[in-house]
């Protein structure tokens, strides 16, 4: 079912195109993008504003669907999946980290981290334990009962990271995870990504505008006007 290659890559994207129709004009956010990412890679995606980075990440994260093209995640053809199957993929295989954290307000850090496990039938006791462990991994176990508005930006992003890794997803996608953070906090967050990648073999794909952040990744893909214009290791 995989065209061309028979080895099992984590991500295979073939001629992905995304067109937004705004009234009479078509905005081609992605143009025939093809790329392969292996399990355990760390990838930085760069490019000017409006070049299609976020659009690409949303499709990889099964949050959005392409206009045309195909996407295989662990050899599963995403294009054939229904809403609930996509939800299962997001739940089991993908952890998404957003620039704006996207935590539930008025909800403790622990409960935010537990959220993905609400949707795969894990007992409340195990949820508690695993969420606590994930918080420990991002160094925030002593703030487990704080609500997002009682946490700094860096701390909030750690909670989001803990939420992304709590279901042991093989892939973490991060769209400008340090975009709202200062240099020092950014470095701390990046250390966690590096640790997850090297120690747990989690594939990390992140979008950034800063070369210093991109430097934490072994591979850099450059976008321009919806095309991939560079792919260096």
């Amino acid at each position: 079912m995989v065209q061309g290659s028979s080895n099992m890559s984590l991500i295979q994207v073939r001629e992905l195109t995304k067109i937004y129709r705004l009234g009479d004009i078509d905005v081609r956010a992605l143009n025939n993008v093809s790329v392969t990412v292996e399990q355990g890679e760390s990838v930085a995606i760069m490019g000017p504003s409006g070049s299609g980075k976020s659009t690409f990440m949303h499709i990889l994260g099964c949050l959005d669907t392409p206009t045309s093209g195909r996407y295989f995640l662990e050899d599963e053809d995403i294009g054939y999946l229904g809403r609930d199957e996509l939800a299962r993929i997001r739940n089991q295989k993908i952890g998404f980290v957003f620039q704006g954290f996207n935590l539930l307000p008025r909800t403790s850090a622990l409960e935010n981290v537990e959220l993905p496990m609400l949707y795969n039938g894990i007992s409340s006791r195990e949820r508690r334990e695993r969420a606590m462990m994930a918080l420990k991994e991002v160094g925030l176990e002593d703030r487990w009962d704080h609500q997002p508005n009682q946490l700094s930006g860096g701390q909030q992003q750690r909670v989001a990271l803990a939420r992304a890794l709590v279901n042991k997803a093989p892939l973490i996608l991060a769209d400008e995870p340090t975009g709202n953070l200062d240099t020092k906090t950014s470095a701390e967050i990046m250390e966690i990504f590096v640790k997850l990648n090297s120690e747990s073999n989690i594939t990390v794909i992140l979008v950034t505008h800063e070369p210093a952040i991109a430097a934490y990744s072994r591979r850099t893909i450059k976008f321009l006007d919806g095309f991939i214009v560079g792919d260096t290791r």
């Binding site: 299962r88 997001r90 089991q92 939420r163 279901n167």
Partner: peptide
């Protein structure tokens, strides 16, 4: 957010 982390219909 709930959908992003796997909430089904």
């Amino acid at each position: 957010i709930r959908m992003a982390v796997g909430a089904k219909t």
